[in-house]
Amino acid sequence: MKGIKQLVGTAHTQTVPVVLPPNSQKLKDALLKEIRRSAYVYRVDCGGCNACEIEIFAATTPIFDTERFGIKIVASPRHADILLYTGSVTRAMRAPALRAYEAAPDPKIVISYGACGCDGGIFHDLYCVWGGTDKIVPVDVYIPGCPPTPAATIYGFAVALGLLDQKLKSKQHQPEAQKAQLKHTNIPLDIKV
């Protein structure tokens, strides 16, 4: 079956994400230059709890107003430059989500929204969930949060459009450089524990 890999016969399987053609990065960079002041976004809800949907919605309302950056939510993926995936990809929504991906014209930017979209969130290993957007389509930008606040959403769009740089970097901590400090040293051990 297309897009499904067997792990233990038909009893246990996992999805295979869509593979990008080799020169897509160049096309995406060209796209970003064009859509910097006017980006059309299409929301694909892959089975989220709706908190992400409401926060995206709140980002379009007067207090946060994404439209001042030219970001518009459109009704059809055929008009979209950016696909915004929420939810942890339930079984029922896998095929529709792929169809939305195929319907959006290339080149396109894919944003994975919320903890569920980024890596499956709290539902990452359930039987009816495939575990996050990048399990089915290639993702360009990740916006973590549960749900991400409208301000985080605006920041995420700014990163996607190349207006701001990402702030987060992976870290390798050095836990053994120092000893851990004891806490509450003036309370006897028997009472503390």
């Binding site: 980024c118 990048d134 993702v139 360009d140 930008v141 990740y142 916006i143 973590p144 949060g145 991400p148 606040t149 301000a151 985080a152 920041y155 995420g156 990163v159 996607a160 990402q166 702030k167 987060l168 970097k169 992976s170 870290k171 390798q172 901590h173 050095q174 836990p175 851990a180 400090q181 806490k183």
Partner: peptide, 24 residues
């Protein structure tokens, strides 16, 4: 030991997924 604390940082969007992970 109060080693892990939640901050006020919400600007967490990244283009490279590896940047979302920390190790010790």
């Amino acid at each position: 030991t109060h080693a892990i604390k939640l901050t006020q940082n919400f600007e967490l969007a990244v283009t490279n997924k590896a940047d979302l992970y920390e190790h010790a």
